[in-house]
C-alpha cells in the first residue's frame, strides 16, 4: 500500500534548485535509507515530503491525497518526524515531551489519560529513557535527548516515520538498537519509514532500499548491493573508497580511503 509518493518534485529556497525532479514512493512495510553528502538536499527532501515546505514543481501525495490538503492534526496522527536536534529553551521534562506525541490524538481541551500515559511509558521503555522521565530535556546528553525525541515520535503511533539523522548523537549500541527497533516496527507494525543516515554501513545493513542523493538529484535507488558501489559513491562523496562485505551481516561495507596526493 502506497504511503508517501513524490512525483517530479523540484524545490528551491531562493534562486537555485535544491531538489530537482525527484520521484519517490514509500510503501507500508518498507524501511528506506536516505544517504548523501552534506548539503545534498536530504533534510530539504524530508521537509518537502512531510509538507513543511511546498515544492514549486511536482506534487507530494500522502495516502493518495496532496500533502498540503491534509489537516496538520490529522496528518500528525499518521506521520511522525524526528528532526535534527532542537534546543530546549524552556524547562520541559522528558515525560512531558514524550506525552506531546499524544497531543494529535486528543480532543480540544482533553488531557492525556491513562491510555496515553501507558503508550508514552512503553515507548520510553523501548528507547531506554524511562529512568529519565522526570529529568528536564535541557539536562540530558545529546544521545539521551535524541532517544527521547524518537520516543515522542513513536508515541504518535504513526504509520509513517521520518527521521533526520536519528543516530547522530548515539553511541554504538544505541545506534544499532535504534535501527533494530525501527526495522522491527516496520516489519511487525506495517510502518513505512525513511531514515537519513550518515552511517552508510548501518543503513546498508537494515534498510530495504537506499536512496543516494547528490546536489538535489537522486543518483541511484535500490537495495544496498546495487547502491553501495564505488562507481556510485566515489564521485558523490569525492573520495576513494573500498566496498567489501560485512563479515557478520554480509551486507556491503564501505571504507573510505585517504585522497591520493596529486603532484
Amino acid at each position: 500500500m502506497i504511503l508517501l509518493k513524490a512525483r517530479n518534485v523540484s524545490f528551491r529556497y531562493q534562486r537555485d534548485w535544491v531538489l530537482k525532479d525527484v520521484n519517490f514512493t514509500l510503501n507500508r512495510g518498507e524501511l528506506f535509507g536516505l544517504i548523501g553528502p552534506n548539503g545534498s538536499g536530504k533534510t530539504t527532501f524530508l521537509k518537502v515530503i512531510s509538507g513543511v515546505l511546498t515544492p514549486q514543481q511536482g506534487e507530494v501525495l500522502f495516502e493518495d491525497r496532496t500533502i498540503s490538503s491534509w489537516n496538520r492534526n490529522r496528518l500528525a496522527q499518521k506521520m511522525a518526524m524526528v528532526s535534527q536536534e532542537t534546543p530546549f529553551d524552556f524547562p520541559f521534562s522528558v515525560l512531558e515531551v514524550v506525552l506531546m506525541g499524544r497531543y494529535p490524538h486528543l480532543r480540544a481541551l482533553e488531557f492525556e489519560g491513562e491510555h496515553d500515559l501507558a503508550i508514552a511509558k512503553e515507548t520510553m521503555g523501548l528507547l531506554e529513557v524511562l529512568h529519565l522521565e522526570n529529568r528536564l530535556m535541557s539536562e540530558l546528553s545529546g544521545g539521551e535527548r535524541q532517544r527521547a525525541l524518537v520516543a515522542r515520535a513513536l508515541s504518535q503511533k504513526p504509520v509513517c516515520l521520518l527521521m533526520d539523522e536519528p543516530t547522530a548523537f548515539l553511541d554504538l549500541r544505541h545506534q544499532l538498537d535504534l535501527f533494530i527497533l525501527t526495522r522491527d516496527l516496520v516489519r511487525s507494525g506495517g510502518l513505512g519509514a525513511l531514515v537519513i543516515s550518515h552511517d552508510i554501513n548501518l543503513a546498508a545493513q537494515f534498510c530495504d532500499q537506499l536512496i543516494l542523493i547528490d546536489r538535489g538529484e537522486i543518483v541511484v535507488q535500490g537495495p544496498a548491493e546495487r547502491v553501495i558501489l564505488p562507481e556510485h559513491l566515489e564521485p558523490v562523496y569525492g573520495c576513494r573508497l573500498v566496498v567489501d562485505r560485512s563479515p557478520v551481516s554480509g551486507t556491503p561495507r564501505v571504507t573510505p580511503l585517504p585522497s591520493p596526493v596529486d603532484s
Partner: peptide, 21 residues
Amino acid sequence: AAARSLNLMAIGEETALYLGV
C-alpha cells in the same frame, strides 16, 4: 484554549507543525 499549542510552539515551530498545530 490554545495552551497545548503553546507548549509545542515553545519547543519549536517545526515541532509544533509536525505535532499538528
